Simulated assay, not measured.
Amino acid sequence: MKPNYRRCISCRRAALKQEFWRIIRVNPSGQLQLDRGMGRSAYLCPQVDCLQAAQKKNRLGRSLRTSIPSGVYDTLWQRL
């Protein structure tokens, strides 16, 4: 079985799926979850630069096609 590669929405680096944070917009409720769930996903490197760029340029919101509450960013900042 071949490995699963994903791409960071901020720096566009491709790596194994386990190296990224996964942010999910759950269907049909539209709620956001971290790491587990089924729905539309975005992957982000666990680095300061990537998180800053994603927050500043609204890359998570565009990728997930929804507005991102500040609580999600606060949780990601705490994980660093």
Rank of each mutant, 00 (worst) to 15 (best):
C45D: 00
D49C: 09
A42C: 04
A15N: 12
W77N: 08
R62W: 00
Y73M: 12
A15Y: 04
G71A: 12
R22K: 10
I68C: 05
C8S: 05
N27H: 13
N27G: 09
E19T: 11
Q31G: 14
L51C: 07
Y43W: 09
L80V: 08
M1K: 14
I23T: 03
N58Q: 14
P3M: 10
L32S: 04
P3N: 11
P28A: 07
S41Y: 07
Q78Y: 08
Y43A: 02
N4L: 14
K2E: 13
Q55Y: 00
N58C: 01
L32H: 04
G61W: 04
T66L: 05
Q31P: 05
N4T: 13
I9F: 01
S67G: 09
K57C: 06
R22S: 03
S41V: 12
Y5C: 06
L76Q: 03
Q33N: 14
R6L: 06
Q18P: 00
T66R: 04
R36Y: 15
S29V: 14
R7G: 01
Q33Y: 13
G39I: 02
L44M: 04
R13M: 10
Q78L: 12
W21F: 14
R6S: 05
R59W: 08
L32Q: 08
I9D: 02
K56F: 08
Q55G: 00
I24Y: 05
L16M: 11
G30D: 01
A53N: 09
Q47A: 15
A54H: 01
R65V: 06
M38E: 15
Y43I: 00
G61C: 04
L76P: 00
I9S: 03
K56I: 02
Q47T: 15
R79P: 09
L80C: 09
R6F: 01
F20K: 02
P69A: 06
Y43R: 02
Q55R: 10
K2T: 12
A53T: 10
Q33K: 15
R22F: 03
S63Q: 11
Q78I: 04
P69M: 06
G39C: 05
V26W: 11
C50H: 08
A53Y: 02
S41W: 08
L80N: 08
K17Q: 11
R25C: 03
T75P: 01
V26K: 14
R25H: 05
D49I: 09
Q78M: 09
C8K: 00
I68R: 00
I23K: 03
G39H: 09
L60K: 03
A42R: 07
K17D: 07
P69S: 05
G61K: 07
D74F: 08
L34K: 11
G37Q: 07
A15G: 12
L16I: 10
R36Q: 15
R36F: 15
Q47D: 15
R25G: 01
